[in-house]
Design a protein around this nucleic acid. Structure first.
Lengths: 207, 207
DNA sequence: GTTAGCATGTAAGGAGTTACATGATTTT
DNA sequence: AAAATCATGTAACTCCTTACATGCTAAC
């Protein structure tokens, strides 16, 4: 998931680790940031797998001849995504299974890279997320209805607030889904005007 | 944190693992449950530490004499909290440091056991949580204000929804804190009526 | 010239999950 | 007697954190 997010960020522009960490925090909801103990090993792994490449830090030729003994120097290491990395990212981005929406932060990362995601995939991820959250809501409502009396004030408040949150998330997702469908319909209509007989949809699903 | 939750549940009544898992799901917000791969090793650890004890499953004497060869039998194992376990739980319950509120699910567990928590500790945990969430809110507002233009619709929506959520959580916490303060004041007043000169507060803090 | 912040990295470990394996009890 | 569900357990692994260690660069 971290590796997915890194690939996604490097898709937009090359960056070094320290910079990535800040961008990552924004992508992951601004709440918590990733630690360096996770980040740098992840970069190493991605590089070993050939999905990203470190650009030569500072070309030696450009430094003054008497530059302070480059041996052992540790400057900024700027990473860029490779062709294979782009392929891998495209694969990850088109995952529509439970791994894309069951986990909250995984879903967040997918959403953050929706601009790189096909319209039909976007829709299925949003719908999957909505199903997941609806199930949570139903379980919570059930549990509240059954155990309302036995719970103390605090647990009750916790569950009420949790229910309120999932409820709002469902409504939010519904809005996103609806506007997504509108967009698709509009795009479809525009295509229909250009090419008179669009019998086969452009992104037919085989599953 | 899992161990904390187990101790808290066993505080209320002895239970076996399978049962604990269900109760745990309720305590942890009803969203996701703990897996057995976590639960049973945790029970083993707690037992090894002497914090819980397994009650003799089914007293052999009570079984019919021809019971099917108890060797290797694996029946329900009911665990109960020990005196040391209660002590440890009391320690954990009175933790008011960042570990009690920085992590969302840790805070949830603390809240779930507020009925076993002293009034002043409750208040400090709630206030700590509010500070944490307020910081998240401020960071999100900042990031939204600064990068509003550069973000695509989806990231923007994600951040807007996130901001809305933390905002509501702050308000919820404020309500809890206010009613907690009211309760404390009322209790104080009641005490004052019984004992005429209550100059020293009952739970003076030394830190 | 020394403090503060930028930048990279490693080792150890925490806290859980998945997948697997087994057996007991209840329902159909 | 077969199927479902209750119940316990282990091994391998994932993914991340904390704590530590190092060095570069700008500001005061």
């Amino acid at each position: 998931m971290l590796e997915f997010a890194i690939l996604g960020l490097l898709q937009q522009s090359p960056m070094h680790g320290y910079e990535l960490r800040k961008e990552l925090a924004a992508v992951l909801g601004g709440l918590r940031s990733i630690s360096y103990g996770s980040l740098y090993p992840a970069l190493k792994r991605l590089q070993a797998a050939g999905l990203i490449a470190s650009e030569d830090p500072v070309p030696r030729a450009l430094l003054p001849a008497d530059a302070p003994a480059l041996t052992g120097r540790r400057g900024k290491v700027v990473y860029a995504i490779t062709a294979e990395g782009k392929e891998r990212f495209a694969d990850l981005v088109s995952q529509t299974g439970p791994e894309a929406y069951d986990d909250e932060s995984r879903f967040g990362v997918h959403l953050a890279f929706f601009r790189h995601t096909a319209a039909d995939v976007r829709l299925r991820i949003l719908e999957g997320r909505r199903r997941t959250v609806e199930r949570q809501r139903d379980r919570l409502m059930d549990s509240l209805r059954r155990t309302q009396e036995k719970l103390d004030r605090y647990t009750l408040e916790l569950q009420r607030h949790g229910l309120d949150s999932v409820d709002r998330e469902v409504r939010w997702l519904t809005e996103l889904i609806d506007s997504e469908r509108d967009d698709n319909a509009r795009a479809e209509a525009a295509r229909a005007e250009q090419t008179p007989t669009p019998t086969a949809p452009p992104n037919a699903v085989t599953t």
